[in-house]
């Protein structure tokens, strides 16, 4: 294990011990000082004192950067001069960026739909068998796996060799068994986006399933039994009873997936690096950043943010409703 920097290890150890200690000192010393103040002053200062580190971090790393990115998006690539809407014009007219926009829309629709739909279907199916917990573990298995590892896993599944040679990729070997020609899944323009989106769905279905399954368990068996006595068959029960009852959960999971779809970066970056027309907004932004095109990258970021705003509003509304119920 050569090449390990001892200095970094010491820095890390200091951080692990010193940061909590420093915050502990901050709390105890700060409280001592605050307790000496007049009562009204205490009530004023104390909450801000406690919330300050969190609010400070959120401000430095999120609120200020958000505003600053909007400013940078109207500036040139070195961030030295104002150039109006040129960066946006570039984003909405240049073929490469338009491709990334199209692909992100594909992710938004298909990734979200299939992750939630499959999560729902599997949750309902496994609810009816005795090996439910085992089946759920199987479906959930990709969730803890990083997108980097998942991408390598699926690079093998999609592996392609020219026709006539041995297919070592699982999918093309299966096609061979069926007597079909191998497909270059990740290069072929008709399959590559679908293939990448499928990998995304594969990593997310377990998450959707677990959450939907938890609400499914909360539906009382009496409701289902009543429907059965009324002569409903299993498909009608799923469609007319279970799905409507699960709808609030489905929308919550759905918004989470929409946000994931917009933020998609790792899978595309590792598997194709955006080549062969698979770029998405997030990889497009990263490559602009790597080319030091700050203004253009910022404009892409703003587009991404604008896409998130409706979800942001939904999230805040839901939060406010929950607060009223507290």
């Amino acid at each position: 294990m050569a090449g390990i920097d001892v200095g970094q290890i010491i820095t890390a150890l200091i951080a692990i011990i010193a940061v909590p200690l420093a915050l502990l000192g901050y709390i105890i010393l700060g409280e001592q000082i605050i307790e000496r103040l007049s009562d009204s002053l205490q009530g004023w200062i104390r909450p801000y004192f406690w919330a300050l580190p969190a609010i400070g971090f959120a401000t430095i790393f999120m609120v200020y950067p958000l505003l600053r990115t909007v400013v940078v998006s109207f500036r040139n690539n070195d961030d030295t001069d104002w150039i109006g809407f040129s960066n946006y014009k570039y984003f909405f007219t240049f073929p490469d960026t338009l491709t990334s926009l199209r692909n992100s829309l594909l992710w938004l629709v298909f990734y979200t739909f299939f992750a939630v739909f499959l999560g729902l279907v599997i949750a309902i199916l496994v609810d009816r068998v005795r090996y439910e917990s085992l089946a759920k573990i199987a479906i959930f298995l990709p969730v803890p796996i990083s997108a980097v590892a998942a991408s390598i896993i699926w690079k093998f599944m999609f592996d392609y060799q020219p026709p006539g040679t041995v297919q070592t990729g699982t999918l093309n070997a299966l096609l061979g068994v069926a007597g079909r020609d191998p497909v270059a899944w990740l290069i072929n323009a008709t399959t590559n986006n679908a293939a990448l989106i499928f990998v995304g769905v594969w990593t997310a279905t377990g998450f959707c399933m677990v959450i939907i399954s938890a609400s499914l368990k909360a539906i009382s068996s009496e409701v289902l039994e009543a429907a059965r006595i009324d002569g409903a068959n299993e498909f009608q029960i799923v469609r007319l009873v279970i799905t409507p009852l699960l709808w609030p959960t489905i929308t919550v999971v759905g918004t989470t997936m929409l946000i994931n779809a917009l933020k998609t970066f790792d899978i595309v970056y590792v598997m194709t690096n955006g080549a062969y027309g698979t770029d998405v907004i997030a990889t497009q932004m990263f490559s602009q950043l790597q080319h030091n095109h700050l203004g253009r990258a910022a404009a892409v970021g703003v587009v991404l943010f604008i896409a998130v705003v409706p979800l942001l509003v939904i999230n805040i509304r839901r939060f406010q409703q929950q607060e009223e119920q507290r």
Binding site: A282, L289, G301, F319
Partner: peptide, 24 residues
């Protein structure tokens, strides 16, 4: 207000913040 901002920040893509944080 602070807390609503925090709820809102939960969904903000970090891509939106990368450039200024890098500059910082």
């Amino acid at each position: 207000l602070f807390f609503i901002v925090i709820v809102g920040l939960m969904v903000v893509p970090i891509q939106m913040t990368l450039i200024p944080v890098l500059q910082f």
